[in-house]
Amino acid sequence: MIGVVSFGMGNIGSVCNALEHLGHTPLIASAPEDLDKADRIILPGVGAFPAAMTRLSTSGFLDALNDQVREKGKPVLGICLGMQLLAETGTEFGDCAGLGWISGRVEIIPRGSSDLRLPQIGWNELVLKDNAQLFANIEGDTSCYFVHSYQLLPTDPSDIVATVDYGGPVTAAVQRDHIFGAQFHPEKSARVGLAVLDNFAKV
């Protein structure tokens, strides 16, 4: 079963709908102990970085996630803000400690040219690193749906497995061992997004 962490940051219904559509069984984890039953974990999230970390901490999910992912080695997929939370440090509204599973910081996308609109909202085509597990068997147009102003910048660039061009390369997906992250919304990215979720369900 795929545990979907429900900690009050965004709509988890779409993620569950997509998993069910693919024939997988989502387990809505409303309490930290629910994750015991999951063999892998999805951490979705929409909203602000510090608010999300506070919620993870007060709900008990922070300790549980560290135990399940760090100690027990269960694969995890962070989506959107959930991916950013994998980092050591967030910088939205000041520096804030993240889960720290991927070394690096979350920074606002550089505006560079003045006509770059933030947030980046819409479909952007992924530039994939070879043999990235999340993107196995995906062909053709790799556009996925993004909604974000911040990006995860890993200390080790080899943690980046996909980028998009938005005023320069922007981190679209990361992987370090069994820890995965997608900045886009796979549950909203039609065929490509469903394939990403299916790939994660099989790692």
């Binding site: 219904g13 559509h21 909203k188 997004g193």
Partner: peptide, 8 residues
């Protein structure tokens, strides 16, 4: 709609 339309 949200059950089968995997788009925003």
């Amino acid at each position: 709609i949200s059950k089968s339309a995997f788009m925003p």
